[in-house]
Amino acid sequence: MKKAIVIGGGPAGMQTALQLARRGVEPVIVERENALGGKLRNWHRLFPTFTPATDVLAELRRRVDEKGIEVHLSTEVESFTAKSVKLSDGRTMPCDAVVVTTGFTLFDARIKEEYGYGIYDNVVTSTDLERMFNEGRVVKADGSQPRRIAFLHCVGSRDEKVCQQHCSRVCCVTGVKQAIETKQLLPEADVFNFYMDIRMFGPGYEELYREAQQQYGIHFVRGRISEAAATHDGRIRIKAEDTLTGRPLRMSVDLLVLLIGMRANDTNAAFAAGAGLTRAASGFLQPENLFLDSVRSGVEGIFYAGAVTAPKTVGETVNEAIAAADAAAEYLSKN
């Protein structure tokens, strides 16, 4: 039986392994963290249906268990070729193919210094907010309820100043989803979303956006917040331009949520150098062909699935994993 190593045990890695197993290939998942699930482990609900992330995660894990797929947790990959994977503890795992499903890295909001993340307690990120949703309450650092909340889109996306020129795609709809969830928890709160463009590319997203506007009364202001500062009473003062009226706009909020983008993993550079892979200007790994071979790396025996090549939704990732596993199985049947 041919063996394929799947690097990364998030949704892409789990689904790839499952499909490989279905296709008669022996999959081995190598995961850096001590549990399967990747970034999904920290998420509360998924757009646009508000499906609990645990539903998706638990089902994928159940299937992986059921198939008895070999999983190596807390195992970090240093480099690889199509024939072997070298681990950072010095061990080498031989294989017949590799599927790279290492996903993405969340943008570190502290780099956008002007928003004061890490300096002002009531400036949080979209991941911090998911943690609050998991705890069932959205509160300020002092435990009190926020009355006015601002979301800022595109933090670490579409921003040359932090070397992230790409669009992270999912943050727009995440902002809409989180604004609605916030409003559900705090119906009396005023919620403002500051955006440059609203990119509602998926099924049901535009409808969700409209629902946020009309049913939940969420205010959408077209303009990027330029800076945040603390006020005398411990709130956050933000500045933006209301570009649709052409006037600067200022307001104080109790909580500022930064919708942080998806950036390429730092490991991509070393992986690319070690295996002869190509990286896009964004730092994400570049598939052989965006139309016909989006899961092939261009190097024989190495395949991609999920956000390692570009920001993607969970649904897109899981679907792509099937395509990647199929391509790997087809390759292994011939080699």
Partner: peptide, 27 residues
């Protein structure tokens, strides 16, 4: 005089009333 829209200073009561009566305007 500053020409910024200062949401802290503006009285949003009328605005809220308008949006309550015609929430579609928010869309």
């Amino acid at each position: 005089q500053p020409r910024a829209i200062d949401i802290d200073r503006n009285n949003l009561r009328k605005s809220d009333e308008i949006l309550r009566e015609m929430p579609e305007l928010q869309t």
